[in-house]
Design a binder for these strands. Structure first.
Length: 427
RNA sequence: GGAGAGGUGCGAGAGUGGCCGAAUCGGACUCACUGCUAAUGAGUUGACUUGGGAGACCGGGUCCGGGGGUUCAAAUCCCCCCCUCUCCGCCA
């Protein structure tokens, strides 16, 4: 959530920034009015409580001095005051509820230099690496699902039998390729990120504070008999680790990575772009997250982008870096770069990593803070991004490695991890 | 899953209805002493919120695992939940 102080102290500017993200100014105004109403109500409640507290200690004094009659009289007086106080408190709660309801619909502010724009069409390609259209002319490319089925490393039929559409079942070298990819990515980042194996099932409270469980975000699967949820991304577990904590300045930046399974309901996503490994209810991913001081956010962001790109380069996959325009930014992000890998099989750029600078948006709800050396407590800034999302990278490797004889050559960097140089159909 | 014990500030730990945002010890920070470090002495040291002030700061309110309740008054009494530890059971 955003800082409600911004609504009160810097309303014009905040409205303008949120408008770039497509937020109706009327909603911002509504939030501001409620924030003001809350302050007024807080003052009223505090005044009543002050009176209450003074009266209560006066009763104590009178009792000690054995002035029973006076004490009794004051007690019944305070009894009435208490009723009034409770009414005021009730009103305050109701204002706070409305305020929370409205502010929970306000996204994070975009960073100032994020390009204007309304949709995906206005996103800016910052750089393209390793891609030459000429490389793909003059020969036939196949989508990975066809190649993989032929090689017997992906079995969509049986996955559907077990679990329905948008699930994958990998076999043989396909399974090994997945396992190799994750080990490869984890090794690549081992010096800068601490590897974590978190629980894959978390409390509703934890996931809610990461912003992945709102009225509008119903991606996560819930366990039927418990208030526990399957993580839609490792970010949820990693960001949840320090909720409610005040870290020492010297601990920052915190850099974690985790290889986890991710589960997403992907409601409404059925259809054409879900074939093969493009979009799954269950997939595997190495996630990177950082917590840092506010002033280090942009630097950490750029290095996170570089870190996320490193495996793609090492695997020799053509990719591009896209900066999302203000209107296309995700709800909690101030800045997002997407890494997209070119897929010759479908002739499209597929998002394999989305790197977000979340500033203090998540840490405010999660109360993840740090104490400055000289004193003073502040919210940490948070960043996250995929270090390697396996399904689409798996698919890209299969498509790019395709040779005319139907076999698939693996990138050399991966060979030690998979144990073979070529994926071929089992005879 | 069953039985018991317990959750208090940065840490340890006292407090069982008003004098408690909270003893004491430790840690950290500041100052003094000192060539430096150590030691010693003095002092400071929770978060959030609201009001005043340019600010240093000052006043009010809330918070003793979380949520309800009793009471003029709750860290303290009652109920529910969460967590930790010990023992038993089960188990990869």
């Amino acid at each position: 959530m955003i800082d409600t102080r911004l609504l009160l102290d810097d309303f014009e500017e905040t409205t303008r920034k949120l408008a770039r993200k497509g937020v109706d100014p009327a909603l911002v105004e509504q939030a501001r009015d409620l924030a003001e109403a809350r302050r007024v109500q807080v003052r009223a409640v505090d005044a009543a409580r002050q009176e209450m507290n003074a009266g209560a200690s006066r009763v104590g004094e009178l009792m000690r001095e054995s002035r029973r009659d006076e004490a009794e009289a004051l007690r019944s007086e305070l009894s009435l005051l208490r009723a009034r106080l409770e009414a005021l408190e009730q009103e305050l709660r109701s204002v706070e509820e409305s305020l929370d309801d409205v502010t929970s619909r306000l996204p994070n502010l975009p960073a100032d230099d994020v390009p204007d724009g309304r949709s995906e069409a206005d996103n800016v390609v910052l750089r393209t690496l390793g891609y030459d259209p000429a490389d793909y002319a003059g020969r036939r490319w196949e989508p990975h699902w066809d190649i993989a089925e032929r090689l017997g490393i992906l079995d969509a039929q049986r996955a559907a039998k077990l679990s329905g559409t948008m699930f994958a079942l990998l076999k043989g070298d396909g399974a090994r390729l997945l396992r190799g990819l994750t080990a490869f990515a984890l090794d690549m980042h081992r010096d800068s990120y601490e590897e974590i194996v978190p629980p894959h099932v978390v409390r509703g409270e934890v996931i809610a504070k990461t912003g992945h469980l709102t009225k509008f975000d119903t991606q996560a699967y819930r366990l039927r008999d418990d208030d526990l949820w399957l993580i839609p991304t490792g970010e949820v577990a990693l960001m949840g680790m320090h909720q409610g904590e005040i870290l020492a300045e010297a601990q920052l930046p915190v850099r974690y990575m985790a290889y986890t399974t991710c589960w997403r309901r992907e409601a409404g996503a059925a259809g054409k772009e879900t074939r093969g490994m493009q979009r799954l209810h269950e997939f595997h991913k190495v996630e990177l997250v950082k917590l840092c001081k506010p002033e280090d956010g942009e630097t950490e962001f750029q290095s996170l982008v570089a870190d996320a790109a490193k495996p793609l380069e090492a695997l020799g996959l053509p990719y591009r870096v896209v900066e999302l325009c203000a209107g296309d930014l995700t709800f909690s992000a101030a800045r997002v770069y997407d890494l997209e890998v070119y897929s010759p099989g479908v002739d499209r750029w597929l998002e394999v990593s989305s790197i977000s600078l979340v500033t203090d948006f998540q840490s405010r709800r999660g109360q993840i803070r740090f104490r400055r050396q000289g004193g003073g407590v502040e919210l940490v800034h948070a960043l996250n991004g995929s270090g390697l999302a396996t399904p689409r990278v798996w698919a890209a490797i299969v498509e790019h490695g395709l040779r005319s004889d139907g076999t698939v050559v693996l990138p050399p960097a991966l060979v030690p991890y998979v144990g073979v140089e070529t994926l071929r159909a089992r005879s």
